[in-house]
Each structure stands twice: as C-alpha cells, then as structure tokens.
Design a protein around this nucleic acid. Structure first.
Lengths: 242, 242
DNA sequence: ATTGGCACAATGGTCTGACCAATTTCGAGG
DNA sequence: CCTCGAAATTGGTCAGACCATTGTGCCAAT
C-alpha cells in the first residue's frame, strides 16, 4: 500500500509548476529563454507572489531555472509536465580525493558514452562531432595549448550523440560543481596537453563505428587527465584547494 | 577569467542552509528527526520566515527534508555542509525508454567499478566479495532463480571495494528510484536468470586482478539484463508501466 | 555620430504581519 | 482510564511594502 502515500503533499506550489510546465511546452520555450515575471505569474495564476516564488525556488534547486535579480528568471533546461526528478546528493569536499573520485565517475561515463556514440552515430552526427574536433584542433595549434572551452564542446557533442541525455546531465553537473578545478585544477601548466592526440584517435574510432575501440581511446584520454592531476598534487604537497 | 564570475549569486538562503547544515551536524540529527520550527529559525538566525521558508523549500525539492503541516519539518536524509547535488531530470516518466537509459548509466558505472575493484581488492576484500557470491549462488540453486536481494548485495560489495563511494551512491539512488521496475520490470519470468553465470566469471577476473577482464565481464552481465528488458518490452507491446 | 553618464523603470530578494489549515497537546467530562 | 473537543502549535498562503541589482533610454559632452 506504499503506492498511495500522501494524498496531498502540497497543492498550490505543485499546481503552479504544472501550469508553468504546460506554459513552457505550449509556448515552446527553450533553455535560455526568459519566463514571465513573478508578479505576472502571481496575477495570472491568482496566487500570491510568495507561492510563485516557492514553486520557482523548487525548480531553481533542481537546476531547471536560473534567477537573475533585476533581469528575470530564465530556463536552464527543457521542462515538461511529465518529468521525473532524481536528485542525487552526496558528501564530497573540494579536496584532491573528491576530485579524483568524480574523475573516476567521469571516466566510466565517458567510456560508455564514447562506445554508444560509435554505435549510433550517423553521417550527420559524425559531421557534427568532426566540426567540434576541427575547432578544437585549430584552437590548439593557434594558442599552442588546450582550450578548455572547445575541448568541453567536443565532449558535449559526444554525450549528445550517445543518444542518452543522462550522460550529459551527470557530467555537466559535475563539471559545473568543479569548474574552477576541472579546468586548471592545481596550477599545472599545459593542463590537458597530453590528452590532445586522443581526441582524434577517439574520433577515428567513432567514424569506424568501433564501439570497443572508442571505449579504449576514451579511457586513455581520461587517463592522461588523471596523470596531470596526480602530477599537480605531487607538485604542491598538502595543497589547500578550497 | 571565467574563474571569478558571479560574485554574489544569493546570500541569505544559502547562508541559512549552511548554518542549518552545521546545526544538523553538531546536533547529530538523523533522518527522521525533527528540526527547529520555521519561526524559531527565523528568530535565531535573524532573518524573516520568508527567507527560512525559501531555504527549506530548496532542501525539500532535493528530497533532503519533509514538511508536515501542523507537525513540523523532518530530516529525510543525511545532510552536511559540503554536499554535492546532482539533480537528474528524465524527459519522460517511468517508461521503457527511461529505464533503458538508466541501465546504460549503470552499465558504465558497473564496468568501471569492476575494473577498479580488480585493481584494488586485497585478500580481505576478495573474501568479502566471495562471501556475497556464495550466498547468492546458494540462493540461486535453492530457489532455482535469481534472488534480487542477494544479487544486489553482491554488486554493492563490488561498489564498496572499488574504493570510490560515489559508485554505490549513484547506483543506489537510481536503484531506489526504480526499485519497483528494476527487480521484475516487465513481468519477465526468471528475470536476470541469464546474468547468473557472469557473476562468477566477474569474480574470477577480480581475483586475478585483471581490470580489463573484469570490465568486460561486467559489460556482459549488464548486457544480459538489457536483453531481458528488451524481451519484456517486446512481450507486452505498449506497456503502460506507470 | 559616438561615447559616457545618469535617472528611471523593471525584476528578483527580503521583510512584516496577518490569517488559514492541518496536527498535536492536553484538560474536562464521561 | 478512556474519549472528545478546545486550544496551542506549526506549516501554507496571502497582501503590501521596501531594498538591491539590472536593463533601458535619454541627454550632454566629445
């Protein structure tokens, strides 16, 4: 009988979110778009601004929406009425150990995403990834070093083509949480430099639709990042990263 | 210069949550315990009840806390100051597609955990896993079928020995969210039956400290589960699982 | 024509005080 | 001792106000 628990958890807030989700769907709002003012919503929905704010706060906590004071509230992810939220929360400090652990998770997901990508990528998807790769390589040669933004775009493309949005969601969330350290974590010069060649080899395996090969290349790629990280940690012993 | 963006995202709410997290830690509150009244918090922290409520609403949305009108606000999970939130959103509800997507995530994590486990397991850890394997196999032969509980224990042991708590935490959270469907998802008889032999082969690779071998066996194991799932979905077309 | 600064409007963030609704507590009455 | 109901407690909602930040557009100086 556990399936019919709590018949009325809360009314107003949920109702507001449902209506708002429908509004987003009907209006075809995309991530980045601005949604109506709190005051407008409160008036239209015939509820107080307090209630609207509580509802939006819930969405904000789930990362679906972003508020900018003086500007407005903006969509951060696609929302619809039939959504299922799985908020994971775990204890994890910003120390070297935690960073290493998240990197192990990333390695796991990166490898699987690469394998799926190699399986599922059609000509159009391959061209999409190719484009990101070209930009990255050009930037690399122009600045004689990895550009974290173009690099990130390349990986995002792979997650996207994998056909499973969860890969991008999980890794993006981690990326965001650690973005200060993920990029140039420990003051290592040319961080990520060693990973450069594996981007192309990974791309080649994807083009060949070689799932296991792609998995292997992705593992090698992440391995170089982990090495960089370990080197950095060794450099400054007892680094206080927070 | 991307490291110094957003100097003041929001003050009060976050501050409240930090203080509250510290309070929970110091007071040693456990899930199920009741935390102070909104009015008390608002008075103690010198902020309005509105602000306290916004903060608690955020926690409620993350499933950390449960509010009961007329009774109080209760802890639902362990909280601490250094928490890492990873809100995942599934496009659609509890349908076949979503289940398959989470299974792909599980495959990724399972493979990596197995590889790490093979690398890091000492004699004591191997004995620990062996114990779970024995229990599972015994149960299998006794009941002529997979016992989901003992099976789960075996996998939990591997996550644990992997040395990275994130594996167990992420997979457990997904497992919990889908537990009704994860076990006997689509009325398939002998669900998971095909996966049985791979538990021992996986164990053997771990004993041999063969990381890549363990990864391969874990992949095969999950592949059988996916096959079962696909078979089940084919059986009852247009299954309405919700 | 461009640029810089400034006032004003719009918007999210916070506060106050009040009332409503569900729950718990506890005393009166059996 | 038990039962029932009133009162206190607590989360949920509301209205209205003010603050802090951001965006916009006008105007003057260059």
């Amino acid at each position: 009988m556990s399936t019919l628990q709590s018949i009325r958890p809360t009314a107003r807030d949920d109702a507001v979110l449902n209506v708002l989700a429908d509004f987003v769907t009907v209006e075809g709002l995309q991530p980045g778009d601005r949604l109506p003012t709190e005051r407008v919503l409160s008036e239209r929905l015939k509820v107080s601004r307090t209630t609207v704010r509580e509802a939006l706060t819930r969405w904000e906590g789930l990362g679906l929406v972003e508020r900018r004071q003086g500007s407005g509230t903006y969509l951060k992810a696609a929302v619809s009425r039939d959504m299922f939220h799985l908020p994971l929360t775990f204890a994890s400090g910003n120390d070297f150990e935690s960073l290493m652990q998240t990197l192990e998770i990333r390695r796991a997901l990166e490898a699987e995403a690469a394998a799926l990508c190699a399986q599922r990528a059609g000509p159009k998807e391959i061209a999409f990834i190719r484009e990101k790769l070209d930009v990255m390589e050009e930037s690399f040669h122009a600045h004689a070093g990895m550009s974290s933004e173009e690099d990130w775009d390349f990986h995002l493309a792979i997650y996207s083509v994998s056909g499973n949005p969860l890969f991008g969601q999980i890794i993006s969330a981690m990326h965001e949480a650690f973005h200060r350290f993920w990029e140039h974590p420990l003051g290592v010069r040319d961080f990520g430099h060693a990973s450069f060649p594996y981007h192309r080899t990974l791309y080649d395996r994807i083009v060949a639709h070689d799932a296991e090969g792609a998995r292997a290349e992705a593992l090698k790629l992440i391995a170089t990042v982990e090495d960089d990280l370990r080197r950095g940690a060794a450099n400054l012993k007892l680094a206080d990263i927070r």
